[in-house]
Nucleic acid binder design. Structure first.
Length: 587
DNA sequence: CTGGGATAG
DNA sequence: ATTTCTATCCCAG
């Protein structure tokens, strides 16, 4: 039977999604702050991959041709962004910075510029310690161990923007706020604080979404960029039909392909179904007109659409089991996936390059050498640490200073994988079938690669001659006739060494707390005195003013000595921020 | 475990 | 971001 049942929503969580503003451009700005006020674009090949907001104000945009950009904005400053290692380094540094605020270590990175953090435990703790009778003068605890670590804030309001924009609390302003609303409110203040620290300490601004799932936090953040944060307000589940359900209201006018998890293939199938005709794509349209958009609402409300039907429509060889049900959940704004635990080492490191033409063995050898060298360098960078950075029972007591520090592998990859992408042969009619399929082959990674005293060139040389050539022959037994458009080299199957744990469980926790303390030390509020009688500057107002580009977070919010009240100006909308016990009980 | 596919930025 | 260069998760064998 075509049931449209859904799982109960898991709205006990508070998840924050961070997205750094124009990340590549910000990396250059962070190194050279003078660039911040100038139009700045980052170039890869002949295009601008990203540009700062000053450049956008002057009409530049992502994926624009360099020539075009220079015509529109002759004084644009162009930085080369083809070497991505500075971006990778900055990403890692910022990730570690944000991670230091986490207690449960559920901090997951997506690409270089996005992070999810599950702050449920921190929020829950603060929910318990809060004085409900003096919300305006609240103190947010950033550490369980140190009650002085934290910041003061006004818990009677939510920080930042809300969805819907004209949100009004449906309950009685004189009563106690319901727990769901309160958790989100606490999450919003934590988000604002971390954003503030990111900007002050690291020089990066970001855009943030706050909600109860990865899906919703990521999507809702898009509403106010750059330098903004948005919280998806309750009610999140149905009470009296769908009209007052903000999840449905929010997700409904997204194009299906914009939903994370619904990628190219799935949205193609869903679109074809809804439009009632087979795919009519790729008619030589390089930069072609976008296919007609299909909205989430249109699909979900279609009489034939239900989990079983979606399963039939979308399931195929290799597709995840229960895909129909999962997509149905996404169309209803439901996503129960957990924020991943922070990992000490990546599960894979890969290097690849693409080629116009690669069809002779000597060329292949040269490329394999190049890739192997890069790969080994990456392994050293990501998998090797100073000995005294690694916690080990015996060692931590014997190691003295960092001057004697030796290097140690955090993990030994067990497998090396070689992948190629053959350029498909010409068809009889002379056209070339577009294919991006890859061939791959794996083999044990030889132990010699872990020698830290041998120079990288010789290691790469041995790897190519003793392993990679044989693997290449497996993929391409013919002497010639092939033509590769891509070669990829990867190491996988990481075996972590002692002293490094995958998760934050067990004895690694002390390591994590140490890191948190390192970060907190610099901006701990030592002698907190509540403001006389108004509140701290209202984060609400600071955000809502938001003219856009030049708006920045008031840096006085969290510092001492600034509590002399400038009185209560304009508390517009205050009543709407209070809530009652009646109405909504989320759990 | 291996090899391939889908998805993401 | 179907283009490039990574990375992750999932499935069948």
């Amino acid at each position: 039977m075509g049931s449209k049942t859904l799982p109960a929503r898991k709205d006990g969580r508070v998840i924050i999604h961070f997205d750094y503003d124009c990340f590549y451009a910000s990396v250059f700005e962070a190194k050279n702050p003078a660039l911040k006020s100038l139009p700045l674009a980052v170039q890869q090949k002949q295009i601008i991959v990203t540009c700062n907001y000053e450049a956008r104000r002057r009409g530049l945009h992502k994926l624009q041709l360099i020539k075009e950009a220079k015509k529109i904005c002759p004084d644009v400053i162009i930085e080369l962004g083809e070497d991505i290692s500075p971006f990778r380094d900055a990403s890692k540094e910022l990730y570690n910075f944000v991670k230091a605020f986490s207690w449960n270590q559920r901090v997951e990175r997506l690409g270089f510029d996005e992070i999810w953090m599950d702050t449920t435990d921190i929020v829950e703790y603060n929910l318990e310690t809060l004085n409900r009778h003096d919300l305006e003068n609240s103190f947010f605890q950033l550490s369980r161990d140190d009650p002085t670590a934290g910041f003061s804030f006004d818990a009677s309001v939510l920080a930042g923007h809300k969805y819907p924009k004209d949100y009004i609390y449906p309950g009685n302003p004189d009563d106690v706020v319901d727990n769901l609303t309160f958790r989100l409110r606490l999450g919003s203040h934590l988000a604002l604080y971390i954003r503030h620290q990111l900007e002050q300490q690291k020089g990066y601004t970001c855009t943030v979404g706050i909600s109860t799932s990865k899906l919703l936090s990521k999507l809702v953040g898009n509403l106010n960029k750059p330098k903004g944060q948005t919280t998806l307000m309750p009610p999140l589940s149905q009470i009296d039909g769908q009209s007052n359900n903000n999840v449905i209201k929010f997700i409904d006018d997204h194009e299906v392909g914009k939903i994370p998890g619904i990628g190219f293939k799935l949205s193609q199938k869903l679109r074809d179904f809804y439009l009632g005709r087979p795919a009519e794509y790729d008619k030589g349209l390089i930069y072609g007109g976008r296919p007609e958009p299909v909205k989430v609402a249109e699909l979900r409300n279609h009489p034939d659409v239900n989990p079983e039907m979606l399963e039939k429509l979308l399931a195929g060889p290799g597709s995840p089991h229960g895909i129909g049900y999962k997509i149905w959940c996404l169309l209803n704004g439901i996503d129960d996936t957990e924020v991943g635990q922070a990992k000490a080492v990546p599960s894979q490191i890969s290097i690849e390059d693409s080629y116009i033409r690669l069809d002779t063995m000597p060329e292949v050898l040269r490329e394999l050498e190049t890739l192997a060298k890069s790969l080994i360098r990456r392994m050293h960078k990501d998998l090797v640490a100073d000995d005294d950075d690694v916690i080990e029972e015996v060692q931590s007591e014997t190691t003295t200073s960092s001057s004697l520090a030796s290097k140690k592998w955090l993990a030994y990859p067990k497998t090396v994988r070689l992948s190629t992408r053959p350029r498909p042969a010409l068809r009889p009619d002379g056209t070339r079938p577009r294919s991006f399929k890859r061939l791959s082959h794996s083999a044990p990674l030889p132990r010699f690669i872990f020698s830290l005293s041998t120079n990288i060139d010789s290691l790469a040389d041995r790897l190519v001659n003793e392993v990679l050539i044989a693997m290449f022959r497996k993929l391409h037994p013919e002497k010639q006739g092939w033509n590769l458009s891509l070669v990829n080299l990867a190491v996988t199957n990481m075996a972590e060494t002692a002293g490094v744990t995958k998760t934050a469980s067990g004895r690694d926790i002390s390591h994590m707390f140490k890191k948190q303390d390192d970060v907190l030390r610099d901006f701990r509020v030592t002698d907190f005195t509540p403001p006389p009688d108004s509140g701290s500057p209202r984060v609400e107002d600071l955000e809502e003013i938001d003219g856009g580009l030049d708006e920045h977070i008031e840096d006085k919010v969290y510092t001492e000595g600034d509590w002399d009240s400038e009185g209560d100006e304009d508390y517009e909308g205050r009543e709407s921020l209070w809530a009652d016990t009646g109405g909504i009980q989320s759990l």
